[in-house]
Amino acid sequence: MMRCRKCATRLNLDFGVNFQAKIYVELVWTRAMMPVASHLMIHAIAMLEIKNLHARVEDKEILRGINLSVNAGEVHAIMGPNGSGKSTLASVIAGKSGYEVTEGSVEINGKDLLDLAPEERAAAGVFLAFQYPVEIPGVTNTYFLRAALNNVRKNRGEPELSMTEFMKHIKSKVQLMEMDNSLLSRSVNEGFSGGEKKRNEIFQMAVLEPTLAILDETDSGLDIDALKTVANGVNTLRSTDRAIVVVTHYQRLLNYIVPDFVHILMDGRIVKSGGKELALELEERGYGFIEEELAAKA
């Protein structure tokens, strides 16, 4: 039995009955290695590959050359002071209008994202948990989620779910997020508290099962209990075929969603990357020490 060094997935090598027969060895060896090879291919192409991304809002350049590579199974945290471009990065990946990409590329599983409409990005597996979820009066949460899920399924070539099948599908996710059932029949986010809105975002993520989830300041406005519930939901969704990018100002959320990598974004660039300990260092010393480091280098 083998395990992938990167993500610890078990890779089965099935040599079958003919292993002893010398004449077949070459052929059988190749066949047996197929799942391993294809698994390694996934790692060879990063799930999210951002190269030299420049983006502006009107005349103001906000992203000034972002490079970031996120593999399946990894959780990356992007931290930075206010105005550093964190939310812009999240919005550009999700395809929000009002941002002009002037240079660079964003790819998901080797596919160019920037030419796709937001709904096509969702179909490609991108999910953005909004910093400020939008209220949609008149559309119930259930109707909205089913329409979303069925569109995503259609794009994956899977059959649409009937109302009964849909309710079955979401039952465990409702429990996972400790959602009050009444929230399902209410209009999307309308009159939800700050915590309920954020919980609803992660609930949507659980239902839609994206391959790349970007959480934009999901911790803002949450009390400690809600934070734990939300973090628990996200942790449950961690898997070897899913990448999660957590955008946050504070280290607090990272106590609960422990990242594999931490990147520090300042002035539209990633200025420092490291492991989870970088977040702790940042918490202790503030963003000032990075600035000093940068100044010393210059």
């Binding site: 209008s97 409409a117 969702a122 909004f130 909205f144």
Partner: peptide, 12 residues
């Protein structure tokens, strides 16, 4: 609001 729905996979 349109973007929010689109970001969940619902065509424009």
């Amino acid at each position: 609001s349109v973007f929010y729905l689109q970001s969940r996979g619902i065509p424009k």
